[in-house]
């Protein structure tokens, strides 16, 4: 039910936007969203933008995961030297 890919909005023309999905470009419908700007990343499903990807949220959650993971690496490294 759910094949949707992240795409960068390049250009907006009325109710459509030209998006770039890893090098593949296509005009998609943006009528399901209130407001989109060039540079936004949107989730594209069957030629429609479903949602704007919250880049800040994405980065924060990734960093959170990376932080745990770094901590864990250090913790693992420490006892192994004994």
């Amino acid at each position: 039910m759910c094949l949707a890919v992240p795409a960068e909005v390049l250009d907006i023309d009325g109710s459509t936007a030209l998006v770039d999905m890893a090098g593949v470009k296509r005009r998609i419908c943006i009528d399901l969203l209130d407001e989109v700007h060039p540079g936004d990343y949107v989730l594209v499903h069957v030629g429609f933008a479903l949602q704007i990807i919250d880049a800040q949220e994405a980065q924060e959650t990734l960093e959170l995961l990376r932080a745990c993971f770094q901590e864990d690496l250090h913790a693992a490294a420490a006892p192994s030297t004994e």
Binding site: D34, I53, D54, A58
Partner: peptide, 16 residues
């Protein structure tokens, strides 16, 4: 999946 999902979703799509 917090980068794309909010509590109330997409109201415009729901209206359609």
């Amino acid at each position: 999946y917090s980068r794309a999902v909010t509590k109330y979703g997409n109201p415009r799509a729901q209206d359609v």
